[in-house]
């Protein structure tokens, strides 16, 4: 079997990019810089082609106003103080026993998985280890590393990295992310978050299909 190094590297890089994008979207409230980037015709055009409605982001209003609107929705959806969707795997997982929802045993498993891969949680990160954005960022980093290995023609390492990504998808992301996304789609009327959630769900489906062998 001949390996197409370049194609494999590209593919991994693309996946890494998508994970990175989604991690950025769900990490916290958007920054003006992010809005600017999303408004870049090169990106905005693709979103449009794909039928992803970015809502306020593309409206003719100043960036800081977009940020304000989306920040309020982000808080309402994911932070509280009232009914919100806690964006953490252990909240959604069913394996957690009657024990705590927040920072449950699943959180420990996620943290341990990520640390086993050589990564550390930054001191300044104040979230909880199984936050959606951390899991997405983790995949972003793994795919990035995979791409590097393909470029260095280290197929064994690259394939091993693929298997680790598959494992993380199966054990973690795919167990809850689709349900989380559907919950968000159901609970928000702000196009940006509804569409980002749908995009994420669709990407999960794609990932599950393309990594399943």
């Amino acid at each position: 079997m001949g390996t197409n190094w370049k194609e494999s590297a590209e593919s991994a890089k693309f996946r890494s990019n998508i994970y990175g994008l989604l991690a950025t979207v769900f990490r916290k409230e958007p920054s003006e810089a992010l809005i600017k980037e999303l408004r870049d015709p090169r990106l905005a055009g693709v979103f449009q082609d794909l039928g992803v409605d970015l809502g306020e982001v593309l409206k003719d209003i100043p960036e800081h106003e977009v940020v304000e609107t989306l920040s309020i929705e982000f808080t309402r959806l994911f932070i509280g103080p009232k009914d919100h969707i806690s964006a953490h795997e252990s909240i959604f997982t069913q394996l957690d026993g009657g024990m705590s929802a927040l920072w449950g045993t699943t959180t420990v498993a996620v943290k341990s998985f990520i640390e086993t891969a050589g990564l550390d949680y930054k001191q300044e990160f104040t979230g909880i280890p199984d936050h959606i954005s951390v899991e997405l960022e983790f995949m972003h980093k793994l795919a990035q590393w995979e791409a590097e290995k393909w470029e260095q023609k280290e197929s064994k390492s690259a394939e091993y990295c693929q298997s680790i990504q598959r494992m993380f998808l199966e054990q973690h992301l795919s167990c809850w992310l689709p349900r989380f996304c559907e919950e968000v789609m159901d609970k928000t009327s702000v196009p940006f978050y509804r569409n980002m959630a749908e995009l994420t769900r669709n990407f999960m489906r794609f990932e599950q299909q393309s990594t399943a062998h």
Binding site: I18, T24, L119, Y121, F138
Partner: peptide, 28 residues
């Protein structure tokens, strides 16, 4: 398509100081 555009536009956005994770992937 989306990934390519993201990669072009958000070069810095993907590895900003907002990251939760530090260090390098070490897989063997």
């Amino acid at each position: 398509k989306l990934a390519a555009a993201t990669g072009t536009v958000m070069v810095t956005g993907l590895s900003t100081s907002q990251n939760a994770l530090a260090g390098d992937v070490r897989l063997q």
